[in-house]
Design a protein around this nucleic acid. Sequence first.
RNA 1: GGGAGUUUAGCUCAGUUGGUUUAGAGCAUCUGCCUUACAAGCAGAGGGUCACAGGUUCGACUCCUGUAACUCCCA
Length: 871
Amino acid sequence: MTLSKNFEHQINENKWYSHWLDKQYFKSTPDERTPYTIVMPPPNVTGVLHMGHCLNNTIQDILIRQARMKGFNACWVPGTDHASIATEAKVVAMLRERGIAKSSLSRDEFLSYAWEWKEKYGGIILQQLKKLGCSLDWDRTTFTMDKDYYDSVINIFMDLYKKGVIYRGKRMINWDVKALTALSDEEVIRKETRQKLYHLNYSIEGTNDNITIATVRPETIMGDAAICVHPDDERYKHLHGKFAIVPLINRRIPIIADDYVAMDFGTGALKVTPAHDVNDYALGQKHQLEIVDIFNDNGTLSEDAQIYIGLDRFEVRKKIAIELEEKGYLIKTEEYTSEVGYSERTDVVVEPRLSMQWWLSMKDISSPALKAVMEEEIKFYPPKFKNVYRHWMENIKDWCVSRQLWWGHRIPAWYHESGKFVVAKNEKDAIAVFETEHHISNAVLKQDEDCLDTWFSSWLWPFEVFKGYSNPNNADINYYYPTNTLVTAPEIIFFWVARMIMAGYEYMDVKPFQEVYFTGIVRDKQGRKMSKSLGNSPDLLELIDQYGADAARFGIMIASPAGNDILFDEAALEQGRNFNNKIWNALKLIKMWEARQTLEATNENDFAINWFENRLSEVSIEVEQMMKQFKLSEALKTIYTLIWDDFCSWYLEWVKPGFEQPIQSNVYTKTIEFFTDLMQLLHPFMPFISEEIYHQLEERSDDLCVRLLAEKESPNQTQLDQGILLKQVISGIRDVRNKQQMKPKDSIKLFIQTENKRVFESLISILSKQVNANEISFANDVVPNSFTSVIGKDKFYILTEQPIDLSTQKSALEKELNHLKSFLISVEKKLSNEKFTQNAKQEILDLEYKKKADAEMKINIIELSLKDMAG
RNA sequence: GGGAGUUUAGCUCAGUUGGUUUAGAGCAUCUGCCUUACAAGCAGAGGGUCACAGGUUCGACUCCUGUAACUCCCA
């Protein structure tokens, strides 16, 4: 069978993924093995795969595949999140395109459209993960609005209500005027925004006097309840207790004093609008100010504004500024940059608003979660996120859990026309509870129209995917929980990670996972975050198509240490593709040997085999260590070097038979073994090509995907050192050849002057192949008319047919000599320092003496060579 | 305004408790090669006052203080 020119990724990806599925390798059921469990952070049900998912899921797949090959019962659970606000927004947009307004639909009608949408588009992202090679247990796919999951969310809401942790209250919240819902603080993105600071004159009642305030929101003056100045501000002391008149609407408001006001900001006088600003609200509460809400839900002005009724807040800002200027109230405007809150989902400016919502009191529920991370019951990688976590947890505020949306888990609260309400699972229960609590029979109750925040369902994920709450103590939850590793982006440490830890302790009495690996954020080459609006997010599926899934995985993993942002560069995928090509070509070479073997035995390849065996052990152990510390990109780099440099560039060249010569069969067998081990090391990172090669190397009945990794013995250091020496010698001689502009075809005669003849005797056949020497012998003295290379303690004389020009050689040696001399001086300086010899540890001292001796010896060798050249 | 982090070759990053031949990779660059696995390749080379200024120490990329720039989180 002839092999294709390159690795054909499209064919192989489909072939192997369906084979793995057929064999049910990714399926996990509890058994006597130790479990290794990961729950996938559920992507939005309507989402599509982007670079962030690619990074995240590649990491998880590497961990899970490695665990599987190490003999754990590996279980990786997929699923999707209903993503209340994002999905509802998409459904609303879809309906609008069809000419249907959400307001024209009943709740049930809307929800049936939403489910239709979910069935049609939901789970596309899961299909895309298969393209990446993710080894998920698909039978366990969970959706946050599955029946059992839904019930658990509602039951937990009721339980927390019963415990008194959930309450209803009117508070300042972040209002999204586009999605028409409340947002939690975490859903508000602050961005530096250029604005104008307007200086406005308010007249003082009963005088001709004025007071000037500075505001960025002139459209809210109709909601003003007071003007506030600092009590110590001399400029305004005479105005305390007086009243000002709001321009345009002529409302009378008090002038109050509070040290909250910064005297040096603006004019030192602050307009107070309690209904539309968090700080003003607090100030209003303190001074018992009137609350005038001038906005409608959608950000237009309400009747209470008296003017500009029905116009949008930003339009009013422009118009009112003009009117204020025309009427002489606007003194001046200045440019001003400050942070403004935007909705994470709709990107509109968030409106602080007073609203009746459901809240979860966080203080008690969060304390075990804080402790768990601080005491490393749950470990964070990298650990710097412990600080971030602690800071948030110690200043935690209550969680607004209600959203004014229909798509999600409907709040199980029931209201009576009297305003009294109860929390119950369904209408029947609600009526019963209502009767006993309020002694009103035949009550007509209406369920709360609102939904719960999406994260109020996601925080149950690690246990509810195993039905740990809906079906307590079932076999799965007892076996798989707590899970092992959570892999997620640092952006959602508060949204999700912290809350899962809380829910885990609250409902399972146990942590949800042992460790959390925080990935970086994927940015473009210029360091900008990837986003739809910037259009800098490449189409991942296209990239997979072009370069292959293995190359995509390689490209994204090669430069992404835990917690560091990764700068995505397509060049890295190219590197991955080239790596595929390299591996494929090594296969082609070995395949050429297959039919041309000989049983004739020589020992000339013993060194190569011995060395590579040790090198393989060394690297396997290193990789194992790196994986334990989540140094995944370093582990991949190490494997890359082992395959490309050590295996392809050195080992294969060393054992490669001459043109059309046979290979010894034992060498062939060993080489297949090595290649197999290499593919096994690589498999978690690049599953497709490694599986394909595994099967190309030999007829096999098993698959690499589930082949158990053998423990490696620790390597023989002497063997490894000899390998290093051999490489140095080869490079050194090649360097001389290069500098003398010898053609690869020109052969040389090599003379070795060494005290270690035995070592070099075993290397002769490799050396002659690698430096194209037709004769190698040992010398006891300088060989005349030759080029010299000094490597370690040994000298190499190179004889060629070419006319000899020693000038380049001479200057190179002189350069080296200078370097060595100054090195020697620095060592001698150190050793002549009494304090050093007194204080340094013996091993450090020994080392310095060795450095000195080595340097002196080399200087001696080089000086001899130079002398010889001169003569 | 408060907190955390980063700063090492043109780019992306390693550098373990201070001492390991006067700082290591990969990519990019340069030179030479169409050498029978691979030009998506081979061989070799060059490139760094470890952000800056002090300090501790026999010895600092590594520890301490300050400064600057950038990033993130919180208000």
